[in-house]
Nucleic acid binder design. Structure first.
Lengths: 216, 216
DNA sequence: TGTACATCAGTGAACGCGCGTTCACTGATGTAC
DNA sequence: TGTACATCAGTGAACGCGCGTTCACTGATGTAC
């Protein structure tokens, strides 16, 4: 239970908010969802959280610091989501790999604000090194999955895992950015983004020489 | 010669600017390059162009209209660039196809502001239908190139051209967004984005069953 | 070729607005004894 | 168990700033005759 850290029912309890950090991040995500990654202000987030414009300064140095916290949390959730989709490569790496791809797109689709925070916030890694770390952790899930796929191949035909992971990432990110986003800039295409990515990955795996189960 | 439409040497000629539209677009690109796709204001663009803050209203309804004009022009230049790289598929489709991929990345790299304007401006296609048209034209270059590749295959093994073009586009866009951008959010990788994309496309083509020349 | 005039593309002053940020403050909470 | 006090997390008023936008205006340009 988390009663100790949340204002009950989302209402203010009194003079102290009780969980302003959380409320500010929530507000930021709502505003990002509504107006894009740079479409919110510190003052607006405060207003949405129901506090005075000076209150956020108790928790964040400035808008970027709040944004970075949102992005970091998004990366952590993203990592968990991909990890669960991979599920240790069960029942077999091929099925699990396809599941990861679908989970990637589902995240971009269902959490466009968090996806934006991760990849379009414009924050520099130099200023927020924890972002870099969190991003790498999420990428590692993808890399581990690729490693498992590569391990099914004969030793003398294995491609570099890093290269393969970057290829898959770019394909997934490109598909998500161009076709799976919820915003108005999404391009309409004659198939679902999920099917499109699925097909791309299958063709790519064929090209690598990964032999997949006969089921397809 | 274009003396009639440009202030000589970039200086104001007198009371009339001479080519304010152009100057505003240039200013917008510079500001996008410096501060991101949403990092400039109408007033700032006016200042950069050396005119009063009211002057831009003679040419654009608002900031978004200027942004849309920048993006439209960027798409047109992008289309031309890809078209020239393709060069009618000479000397052979495979070499030309690789050239298109490299041209794609080179554009994202050398013109990050224009690339941002095209893909991260946040403008809605509904509000600016000419953007949709311009974007489709650029995409058509890619699609035609894919069609030429597909045409080299035996008829009974040809994949859908649209699918293939979307795959290539997503791969190129993902690679450009994640690894080839000039901004501070670029991820460092142990190879050039060009080589990464090249490899991805070759593997993908192998997967499709496109037989390439023995040269590689 | 001159001239009168319409049109165009700029000026600059003004306005209301929301933002970022600071400040002295105050209500609530936790803890030492 | 009470109480005094330190600390924490808020308030709200204030400020300067730049933006978007409007307005009556004016200098420059093009053209009809």
């Amino acid at each position: 239970m988390t009663w100790d850290h949340e204002p009950p029912g989302g209402h203010r309890r009194g003079y102290h908010h009780g969980n302003l950090r959380e409320a500010l991040m929530k507000a930021a995500l709502d505003l990002i969802a509504a107006k894009g990654p740079s479409g919110f202000t510190f003052a607006e987030a405060a207003r949405a959280a129901g506090v005075s414009p000076a209150a956020p300064y108790r928790h964040y140095r400035d808008r970027d610091a709040l944004m970075a916290d949102v992005a970091r949390r998004a990366f952590e959730l993203f990592e968990t989501t991909l990890e669960q989709a991979w599920a240790g490569g069960t029942p077999d790496p091929f099925k699990a790999f396809e599941r990861v791809g679908r989970a990637y797109l589902a995240f971009a689709r269902q959490e466009p604000a968090q996806y934006s925070a991760m990849f379009e916030s414009g924050l520099s890694f130099a200023a927020f090194p924890e972002l870099h770390v969190a991003g790498d952790r999420a990428f590692d899930v993808l890399k581990d999955a690729c490693a498992a796929m590569v391990a099914t191949m004969p030793e003398d035909k294995r491609p570099p895992v890093m290269m393969m992971a970057l290829h898959i990432w770019a394909q997934a990110h490109g598909t998500a950015s161009l076709f799976a986003r919820g915003d108005e800039a999404r391009r309409p295409i004659p198939m679902t983004p999920e099917d499109l990515l699925d097909a791309a990955v299958l063709i790519y795996l064929d090209g690598l020489g990964v032999r997949r189960a006969k089921s397809v």
